[in-house]
């Protein structure tokens, strides 16, 4: 199967500052792809080049084999959702969702039917007549999603759509977005700096660092087999292990260290607890192992009290879980 979304040698410079340094990727139809990275890594610039707001310095963008690189944004037939909702404040919810349909010349009665369908899809039936200011941030962002997908775009672009929302709504809306995306089978590119968000929602993640792709793969691959030190540190928590015992550039995830021996553990470390953080279901211990700080996550248990600061404890880990970090 030929790739649906294809980006080839994409470069973008602003003056002497190159923010995207020759990026390549190809994804299949219906995939949910996250561009993940810290701010300034070039992920938003790539999205804006796909949307057509920025002109690539060089390289090509293709959808379904068609070269988009020189099309204007309003000719690309893409849907986009912005960080700050960007609903048109002077139009009702219904008119916002119908905007793209109206521009495309769909007759009024078909538009109305489509708007109703969209409102049902996002769980806000009967909201046609409301104005954006009368709605919460989460509701506005769902309307923005409906507006973007109403004209049946070839590709859906999401530019950090959850970062302006409260933590709880952020989680529920991301699940909703994912469900709708699966339902419609729409290829989606999602930009975020939040690794947990990217992991929970994506088919594939593109981890970006300083204008380059560091790693591309499923959440499982990215987390368990990080290709670079940057990916390992950016995605999830990581402990660098003492060089004297394990050699250079060795690290391990906090949840893979336990306080009691497991069938697979073959190594122990001894240290002093320097801090105890109670995070609810998880208790995070900070242990000083001969000068190297190591974080350990253990599950909270109702019956036993967590260890105390100053306690000396033994840590158990398996050498097969130790990651070797590259450059």
């Amino acid at each position: 199967m030929a790739a649906f979304l294809e980006v080839q040698n994409l470069v973008k410079s602003f003056g002497t500052n190159t923010v995207v340094k020759g990026v390549n990727f190809a994804f299949d139809k219906g995939e949910f792809i996250s561009l993940l990275g810290p701010s300034g890594c070039g992920k938003t610039t790539i999205l804006r080049m796909i949307a057509g707001f920025e002109r690539p310095t060089s390289g090509a963008i293709r959808i379904d084999g068609e070269d988009l690189t020189h099309l204007k944004p309003n000719q690309r037939k893409l849907g986009m959702v912005f960080q700050a909702y960007a609903l048109f404040p002077n139009l009702t919810v219904g008119d916002n969702i119908a905007f793209g349909l109206k521009i495309a010349g769909m007759p009024a009665d078909q538009r109305r039917a489509r708007v109703e369908e969209m409102l049902r899809l996002i769980g806000l039936p009967g909201f046609e007549k409301r104005y954006p200011y009368e709605m919460s941030g989460g509701q506005q962002q769902r309307v923005a999603l409906a507006r973007a997908i109403a004209p049946k775009p070839r590709l859906l672009l999401l530019d950090e759509p959850l970062s302006a929302l409260d933590a709880k709504i952020r989680v529920s809306l991301r699940e909703e977005i994912r469900a709708i995306q699966r339902d419609l089978g729409i290829t989606t590119v999602f930009v975020t700096h939040d690794q947990e968000e990217a992991m929970s929602i994506s088919d594939r993640i593109v981890v970006m660092n300083a204008g380059n792709i560091d790693q591309m793969g499923s959440p499982h691959e990215i987390y368990n087999r990080p290709a670079t030190r940057f990916v390992a540190g950016f995605v999830g928590q990581l402990n660098t292990l003492p060089e004297a015992t394990f050699g250079p550039n060795r690290a391990i995830r906090p949840e893979l260290i336990s306080l009691a021996p497991r069938p697979d553990t073959d190594t122990t470390l001894t240290g002093t607890i320097s801090d105890v953080g109670f995070l609810g279901s998880v208790v995070r211990l900070r242990v000083d192992v001969a000068g190297t700080p190591i974080n350990i996550d253990t599950f909270n248990s109702h019956s036993t009290t967590p260890p105390q600061r100053g306690d000396t404890i033994t840590l158990h880990l398996a050498t097969k879980d130790v990651l070797t970090l590259g450059a």
């Binding site: 309003n74 793209g100 672009l157």
Partner: peptide
């Protein structure tokens, strides 16, 4: 007038 309004209109096909 937010820049995003113009961009949103453009992605929806508006001139």
């Amino acid at each position: 007038l937010k820049k995003e309004w113009n961009e949103a209109a453009q992605t929806l096909g508006a001139s």
